[in-house]
Amino acid sequence: MDKTLLIAKIKDGTVIDHISPGKSFKVLSILNIDSSIGYTVTVAVHVPSKKMGFKDIVKIEGRFLEKEELDRISLAAPNAAISIIRNYEITEKFHVEIPEEITGIIDCPNQNCISNAREPVKPRFLVRSKNPLSLKCYYCERLINENEILQNL
């Protein structure tokens, strides 16, 4: 691979690396990044990677992510590595982690599930398997696979 940097360094913000190829668009949508934002976002798609073959990278200038946003990203890109950048330096680096229980992030795709009715509860899922990703609805016990999760994120 060419030694030059594909996308420029950022001063302060967040780098999301090791996103499965093609999933960067999902990450942008999870973070509600569209043309109305007031900061710079750079996206690299299908970048050769030693570890993954190919990967996507998202760099966000001037934004730091919340726990719930990281949980959402973990569902779309379970291998993603997060670097927090301050003054061009990496001050913190960690991998996203799929939580054991996922509450209030995605709706149950089963329209007949009580969690989709007018009740005072948030949709809640137990993680049945992380690889391949499979969740079980706490209420209706319906299993949902990776594709359904992505459609719901």
């Binding site: 007949n112 599930c113 009580i114 969690s115 009715a117 509860v121 609805c137 209420y139 016990e141 319906r142």
Partner: peptide, 13 residues
């Protein structure tokens, strides 16, 4: 008995 799936789990909660 309830027509929606998961209703009893919610009730138990």
């Amino acid at each position: 008995r309830h027509p929606l799936e998961g209703a009893a789990r919610l009730a138990a909660q």
